[in-house]
Design a protein around this nucleic acid. Structure first.
Length: 477
DNA sequence: TGAAATGTTGGGGCG
DNA sequence: ACGCCCCAACATTTC
């Protein structure tokens, strides 16, 4: 009965790190413990909360299923409990005789609150709680200015970031740990986990740790070399890495990615290829920049980084918001992007900039409404990246696009979807128009567009002027 | 990780 | 041949 209690037992609490490979806390638990209890806490609202997205939920369920099978292959059974982390971890520690709980840190306000509550609950019963850096190469207080402050401007941050040698990937888990003691109950998992449905379709991203590794392989073998030129064209299937859902859920480790990228750069045989690697690295640094911003300035999740912009007099209407969401604005590149998002949970980064700029600066609606809609649809929806990106577009954030930088949706469409291929794919009403007419169907013979496609719901030139006035008023105040 | 307005220049048509 | 105008192409500035 007491035999297993003699073994040093560590609970690994899986959160946004649904993988076996290159998992810092799991690796530490393997190294330091003798017996492993893998745990996942199924909290209320996990898959049906107000900010859940169908695509992200599906991706999560499939990823959790993948984790269950990967753990089984190592001889472990994932314990799932419904409830709150502090309560369930305390109970599980008592049941298993665990001396410690290990977990990887998150950088969102909610994750921080969980950590505090868990530390308190476990501390009361003398169970250790250790958290580790895993999701990023460098945390919010590790890249600092010469004066010891945190960066709020991207370029100097990225320079400092790139001067550092990132931590290496953790090696494969070595000698098998003892499985957990018998008789530990686990909640039944929903069907989506038992029989994961891998998202398919033109913009689907396959889920799971193995799929993540394959996606990384496929990208660094060749496509990354063309990244600098190809990344801005939404019609191209392979222009970007499509790894963001895996990074968001932790089915891929950032150290693994950085190591593979460094290998690829060493293989590159042209300046253009090296440039592709460098530009992609910069995108990964953007990710850490926004995680760092959210950790150091948690208010950016809901409010403007610059408080004076909380007073902006947004004047858009609910009907305009609905048209934006539904892809019925009459601006083809915007509508194509929004319909793609709704159908697949995915949107190309260039398109995210275009539609967010359009919502804020053409429809004059607050960025928070678009940010929330993105969270309710995106397969990779992540608080730090999402609020950071939206505030960049709105011009209210740290190192944001200046408020007067306003995309012209027609010009952007012509520049980044020159043949109109992406538009025709998602806006069938315009499928018959040629490359010239498809970006501004109201300018050509409208008969060709058919009556079903709306005329522009706003005039870009007019709204641009109103937007500049709105910002001027807030800055003057 | 713009766009629009405004300014400048230079070639060609034309009286 | 010359000056004038137009305007495209590029540069600068402003938002």
């Amino acid at each position: 009965m007491l035999g297993w209690r003699a073994l040093k037992t560590i609970i690994h609490w899986f959160r946004r790190d649904l993988r076996i490979a290159d998992n810092v806390a799991l690796h530490e638990a393997y190294t330091r413990g003798e017996r492993l209890v893998p745990f996942f806490c199924w909290e209320d609202g996990l898959v049906d909360g107000p900010d859940c997205a169908p695509a992200r939920t599906e991706f999560f369920l499939a990823s959790l299923g993948s984790l269950v099978r990967n753990l089984e292959a190592l001889g472990h059974r994932l314990v799932v409990r419904r409830g709150t982390p502090a309560v369930e971890l305390r109970k599980l520690a008592a049941e298993t005789g665990a001396s410690a709980v290990f977990a990887n840190r998150g950088y969102e306000p909610g994750g921080r609150r969980d950590d505090d509550a868990v530390a308190k609950a476990l501390g009361a019963v003398s169970v250790g709680f250790q958290t580790f850096k895993d999701a990023v190469a460098w945390e919010e207080r590790e890249i600092l200015t010469a004066a010891g402050g945190v960066y709020t401007v991207f370029t100097p941050y990225s320079k400092a970031w790139k001067l550092r040698t990132p931590p290496p990937a953790r090696p494969k888990l070595g000698k098998a740990r003892q499985p957990m003691p018998p008789g530990i109950a686990s909640a039944e998992l929903p069907p989506g986990v038992a029989e994961p449905r891998v998202p398919t379709g033109p913009d689907g991203v396959p889920a799971g740790e193995r799929a993540a590794q394959q996606a990384l392989d496929a990208f660094v073998v060749e496509r990354v070399f063309a990244y600098a030129e190809a990344r801005d064209y939404p019609a191209l299937a392979g222009g970007t890495s499509r790894l963001s859902p895996h990074l968001r859920l932790g089915t891929l480790g950032i150290r693994t990615i950085l190591a593979r990228l460094a290998e690829a750069r060493a293989r590159a045989t042209s300046d253009a290829a090296r440039k592709g690697c460098d530009v992609w690295l910069t995108e990964l640094v953007w990710r850490e920049f926004y995680q760092q911003i959210l950790a150091n300035h948690p208010h950016v999740a809901t409010r403007c980084f610059r408080p004076e912009y909380d007073a902006l007099g947004w004047s858009g209407t609910d009907a305009q918001f609905d048209a934006w969401r539904a892809g019925q604005t009459g601006y083809p590149i915007v509508d194509a992007a929004m319909r793609c998002l709704d159908a697949t949970g995915w949107m190309h980064n260039r398109l995210r900039m275009i539609v967010s700029m359009f919502l804020t600066k053409d429809l004059l609606l607050p960025w928070q409404r678009g940010e929330r809609w993105f969270m309710q649809r995106l397969v990779d929806g992540d608080l730090a990246a999402n609020s950071g990106g939206w505030q960049w577009s709105a011009g209210t954030g740290t190192d944001a696009a200046p408020y007067f930088r306003i995309f012209n949706p027609v010009t952007q469409g012509r520049r980044f979807d020159p043949d109109g291929e992406f538009i025709r794919r998602w806006v069938p009403e315009l499928a018959g128009l040629d490359a010239k007419a498809v970006h501004a169907p109201w300018e050509g013979p409208l008969a060709a567009a058919g009556a079903r496609y709306p005329r522009p719901i706003v005039d870009h030139a007019v709204q641009r002027g109103r937007c500049l006035a709105m910002f001027k008023a807030a800055r003057g105040a």
